[in-house]
Design a protein around this nucleic acid. Sequence first.
DNA 1: ATAATAGTGTCTTTTAGACAATATGTA
DNA 2: TACATATTGTCTAAAAGACACTATTAT
Lengths: 250, 250
Amino acid sequence: MPAGSSAATSPMNFPRPLATVDVVILTLGARGLRVLLVQRPGGGDEPFPKAWALPGGFVDVQKDADLQACALRKLHEKTAVRSTYLEQVGSWGARARDPRGWSITCVYFALLPQSALHIGKGGNAADVGWFDVEPDGTVPTAGPLAFDHERLLTAAWQRIQSKVEYTSLPAFLLSEPFTLPQLQQAYELVLGRELDRSAFRRRALSMPGFLREAGVLRTGAPRAPMGYELIDRQQPMVFPRAFEPRTTRD
Amino acid sequence: MPAGSSAATSPMNFPRPLATVDVVILTLGARGLRVLLVQRPGGGDEPFPKAWALPGGFVDVQKDADLQACALRKLHEKTAVRSTYLEQVGSWGARARDPRGWSITCVYFALLPQSALHIGKGGNAADVGWFDVEPDGTVPTAGPLAFDHERLLTAAWQRIQSKVEYTSLPAFLLSEPFTLPQLQQAYELVLGRELDRSAFRRRALSMPGFLREAGVLRTGAPRAPMGYELIDRQQPMVFPRAFEPRTTRD
DNA sequence: ATAATAGTGTCTTTTAGACAATATGTA
DNA sequence: TACATATTGTCTAAAAGACACTATTAT
C-alpha cells in the first residue's frame, strides 16, 4: 500500500523537478502580433543548440521573490521594459518535456506597446528577434522551437485570441494616449478580421471605467482624433458580450 | 551588471524550488458548492499541524508522467473518482509560501457530481471532510487553512464564478442524465441568484453541440421531465453572452 | 474645393428578461 | 379534480451589426 498518506518523512530529500518560467512577449506589427524569441547557445551540453526559444529560464531562488518577479526579470533582461501587462497562462510540467529531467515551466504573456521596443538592452542583442505570429499561433519563420515552446506559444496565443473577443486586452498593446481608430486597429490585427466602427466606439465608450479622455491628438490625420488613456492599466475590462455571436460554421 | 545572460553553466546543481500540486475538489451541496479538505498530520515536523488544507502534495517524478496525472492521482487518493472535469487554475510560487523553502504549487479544480462521492476510498477517511464554500470563496468553518490555501481556494472559486456566467461549467456537477431544471438549479446554486426558466432553457437548448436528449426521466416530479446528456464531457461550452450584462452597481 | 479620416444617427436583427399560458404527471 | 412541476409562447428591452450621414482638417 504505497498510497499511504503523504511523503511526510523527508520531502526535502525527494528528487525535485526543474522549475522554469517562460515569457511570451508580444507586440503589434504591421501584419498582426509579433513575438520575441531568443536563440539558444550553440556549444556545450545545452539542449536544442541554436534553436529559437521563448525567453525564460530557471527560477532563481536567490533573486526571485515569486513567480511573477521571475517573469518580470526575464522580461527586463530582454527588453528593458519594466512595467507592462503580464498574465499567467498556465504551467506545463512533464517527465519528458526537457531532456535534463522532469521539469515544470510556468508561462506568462506580456503585451508591449511598440514604443517600448528596445531589444537587447540586457546585453546580447544578436540572439534576439521578433517574429510574426501566424493566424494559427505558430511561428514558421523561426523553424522548430526548442523544447515544447511551440505548444506554449500556441496556448498563449489561443488565450489571447479568446479574450480579445470579450475583453479590452488589445489596449495594452498601445502607448497612451491612443485614439479609438488605433484601438480598433489593434483589435482587428489581433482578431484577423474587421470590425464595425460605430459598434466598436459604442462598446468602448459605453464601458464604465475603461477610457478617460486625454485631449485631442495631432496624429497627422485629416481630422484630429480624441486621445484616450486607460483608467486601469492593471486589469483588462470584461465586456458582457463577445464581438460576434459564435456561429457554428463559416 | 549582474544581469549577464543566464545560468548556463550547471543548472542541474542549482537549488530547486519545491514542486507541489493542489486540487480544489468541488461538488454541489444544498446551499451551494462544497469543497473537500484534508486535515494535516499533527505530530512531527510537518508545518501547519492539524490545519485543514487542500488535498495535494509533492510532484512524484517517479509516479507522475505530467502535472495533470499528478492532479488526477491526488484526486483519486481522496475520492476514488477517476474521470471528472479537471481544469488548471494557475500556479503560485514564492519564497515565503512554504516554511520549508521556495515552493511552487500548481492548482487544479475538479467538479464532481454528488453520485461519485465516496470519500476516503484512498485509506484515511477520518481526516477528510466537505465544507460549504461561502459566497466570497472562503471556508470559515474550517478555520485558517494551511499555507496560502485560502488564497488558492478563493482563486479557484473566482475562476469558476466568472466562467459560470458564460460557460456550461455547472453541467459537470451533475450526473447524467440530468434534467434542465436540475441544470438550472446547479447554475443558481453556484451563482447564488435565481435565473429565468424560459431564458435559461432557450440558452441551453439553442447551443449547438451542448445537450443530447436521453429520454424522459421519472424523477418523482409531478410531470416527468426530459433527461439530457452532455455531448462533450471534456470541454465546457462557451456562450457568446454572459447571463446578465454586468452592471456597475447594485 | 476635395479628399481622407474621425465621429454620429438610425434602422434592423438578435437575444435575453419578464411573465403569462399550457402540458403532464402525482395524489 | 386539484396541484405541482415541466415546458412553451409572447411581449418588451437592450445592445450589436449595417450603413448612411455629418464633422474636421490637411492638401
